[in-house]
Design a protein around this nucleic acid. Structure first.
Lengths: 191, 191
DNA sequence: TTGTTTTACTGAACACCGTTCATTAAGTTT
DNA sequence: AAACTTAATGAACGGTGTTCAGTAAAACAA
């Protein structure tokens, strides 16, 4: 039942967006009454928290192949590329995972599990880079934040329509993301 | 009247947040009926669009003193610091300006004016930096995006509670922002 | 088989939301 | 005094998340 609800929620969310994903809409889709959903989820955010976790496992899946890139810095750059591609191709999931307030209101003692794992993965790669002499004297936590935030910034501006600020210069949003990423990689290389 | 509504909206928004700022609440605060508000604003987002613009003019105000910093790169760094301080001290305004979808749905032919001006300011400073030999071979638009996005990323993760990912390492959010900013400045210096 | 208890589900009700619109009241012209 | 214009109303519409008394079916006990 729980996954029946989740399947309906996901499909409405992906095809009609967050706003349209109401308890009543979900209930209608699975042909149950609204009240029923509350027997399986404490509140609406609980559903989005579940989808939130699912988003992370999807992203981690796409990063799976990168474990075979032996050079840690190459792996780090590839991770960045996958991260940004994920945001571009899964706008709604990305929004849910990194921008929306909704799934964050949970008692997060139990789960922000997947997010932690992802961040851990990033920090590990950075550590490996440092072991090869890169990023000397930097703190892993701060550096991971800098890197994460820089990429997130581009993705977030993209997701939330702020790339339109470059509309007059006739720059494609996707070119903006690519150019921005390239710049950042160049900076990282020189750090 | 228009500014009476706006004043009420701003004060509710700043003291109780976006969610609590409903047409009905605004109407109650100014002791008019809900319908009246629609005589002065086409829709709710229209109100938030006005506050959105106000946010930019507040931020630009705080950047005003920086025009006296003669070295453009120093000015650029100072702008960054002011930008992040603004986000830290005006979470809700920052959210409205750079994260929320609400004020973006407007027919933006008329106004994203202040945002444009701010971005123009950034691009100009970068140009001046380039005139002194910095950032050789970079494109102003891409570079401005890279810089803006990097700072925005940190601010956005902060505003939307994602800094909690570093909770276990007992890192203060404010330390994270400072450390992240420092890292980024170091990178910019070497680019 | 009958009675009892547990389980799953309902859907009306509550308190909100943004938005519209016929109606009213006040002020201004003619 | 009559006609017109303006400003404001507040009930109504269709939506939202959430709760809860009530129901019906299934499982268990006698």
């Amino acid at each position: 039942m729980r996954s029946l609800i989740l399947d309906a929620a996901r499909s409405i969310f992906l095809e009609k967006g967050y706003e349209q994903t109401s308890i009543r809409n979900i209930a209608e889709r699975i042909e149950y009454s609204p009240g029923t959903i509350y027997l399986y989820f404490k509140e609406k955010d609980d559903i989005f928290h579940a989808l939130h976790e699912e988003g992370f496992s999807r992203m981690l899946e796409q990063m799976q192949p990168l474990q075979f890139v032996s050079d840690p810095f190459e792996r780090l750059k590839a991770m960045g590329r996958v991260y940004m591609e994920f945001a571009k191709n899964n706008k709604d999931f990305y929004d849910l995972m990194f921008i929306m307030q909704a799934p964050m209101k949970m008692e997060k003692n139990d789960e922000w599990v997947m997010g932690d794992r992802t961040l851990g993965y990033l920090k590990q790669v950075i550590s490996e880079c440092m072991a090869t002499g890169r990023f000397q004297g930097r703190d892993v936590n701060f550096l991971s934040f800098t890197i994460w935030a820089s990429l997130h910034g581009m993705c977030a501006l993209y997701c939330r329509e702020r790339c339109q600020a470059y509309h007059d210069e006739h720059i494609e949003h996707t070119a903006l993301l690519n150019g921005g990423f390239q710049n950042f990689v160049d900076m990282l290389e020189k750090l």
